[in-house]
């Protein structure tokens, strides 16, 4: 039995529902020794500001119970170096490229989009309105519906490409934020970004991260991510891309059943650099085992 792995996001058709999550997949080229980049539904490259960015002082990583706490601070090379050094190689390798778009302020988000709009070989933008590690106390636009609406609307008006808003889980009501993004014209939503968290060293009585706070990812967050993906997918009509602690095909299937049209694989890429490709195969095996002809038939099939 052949399984049809393609999924239709409305604004874009994916060869399969597995994307590599921004911030966990470098610029994509780092993974070329380990997997065929063209075998994934897409890769969302590390968040880009307009120029190079310095990032946070170390320590930037702390491992927690089945989780990873990071405070990288979006260190990166900026759009010009991405266009010159990275994008041509990704295109040569047949990757479906999404760019995670960052900005210090609205103006910078729009400048990044305008620059990228001038390049060929990008499928979509993921608007990063939810990084917890770049402003004090984890502040980001995705914490409030009005900020979310204003930024998504401005970005959507500027962009010639589909735009997915990446939402933060650090909110009281994810539905309110999801609806604001949809109302502002987002073509889709991706969630969840990392949970604002911290770790303390009892010996030194100091925070373990240089940035004090960081973002928690990995299997530890999966149940909360699933709940939020379910809530958001139930409340909006645009497609939802689910993520948070996906380590296996079965984990991915849980998100699809909860309502996600596609998934992003994040922290798993560090542990197993071939994880995203493995998860595609495991989803396929799951469908075959259950006699499911099209992976899209799983989406939103949860029975309450």
């Amino acid at each position: 039995m052949t399984v049809d792995l393609a999924v239709d996001l409305g604004f874009l058709k994916l060869r399969n529902p597995v994307l590599a999550a921004s911030g966990t997949f470098g610029y994509g080229t780092e993974f070329a020794p380990f997997l065929d980049l063209s075998s994934l539904g897409g890769i969302v490259v590390k968040g880009l500001y307009y120029g190079p960015r310095e990032g946070n002082p170390p320590p930037r990583l702390v491992e927690t119970a089945s989780g990873l706490l990071n405070a990288i601070g979006l260190q990166g090379i900026g759009v010009e170096a991405f266009a010159a050094e990275i994008l041509p190689e990704l295109r040569r390798r047949g990757a479906e490229v999404w760019v995670n778009v960052c900005g210090e302020d609205e103006d910078e988000y729009l400048r990044v989009i305008s620059f990228l709009d001038g390049l060929d070989g990008i499928a979509a933008y993921e608007l990063n309105i939810s990084c917890p590690n770049v402003r004090r106390n984890g502040l980001c636009p995705a914490l409030r519906p009005d900020w979310t609406y204003d930024l998504v609307r401005a970005a959507k008006e500027r962009s010639r490409r589909p735009l997915v808003a990446k939402l933060s889980p650090n909110v009281t009501d994810i539905v309110e934020i999801a609806r604001a993004a949809e109302r502002a014209g987002a073509d889709g939503l991706s969630l969840v970004n990392t949970f604002l968290a911290m770790a303390v060293d009892p010996e030194t009585r100091r925070p373990r991260l240089g940035n004090v706070f960081g973002g928690l990812s990995g299997p530890a967050i999966k149940p909360i991510a699933l709940r939020m993906v379910y809530q958001a997918a139930s409340a909006v009509r645009v497609p939802v891309i689910g993520m948070g602690g996906i380590m296996s095909g079965r984990d991915a299937v849980e998100f699809l059943i909860a309502g996600a049209r596609a998934v992003e694989v994040g922290t798993a890429n560090f542990v197993d650099p071939a994880a995203a490709a493995r998860i595609v195969r495991e989803i396929e095996a799951f469908c075959r085992e259950k006699g499911i002809a099209r992976v899209s038939d799983l989406v939103g099939t949860i029975t309450i």
């Binding site: 911030g23 966990t24 997949f25 470098g26 780092e30 993974f31 020794p33 590390k46 310095e54 990032g55 002082p57 170390p58 320590p59 930037r60 990583l61 702390v62 491992e63 990873l68 990071n70 990288i72 260190q75 890429n269 560090f270 650099p273």
Partner: peptide, 26 residues
């Protein structure tokens, strides 16, 4: 030596302050 997330350049978690050609960077 450092704690590392991936070991192959993807996570940017294991940085140190390094000076090259007069410019410092992580």
């Amino acid at each position: 030596e450092s704690v590392m997330g991936c070991g192959f350049g993807a996570c940017w978690g294991c940085v140190r302050r390094i000076k090259r050609a007069g410019a410092e960077a992580w």
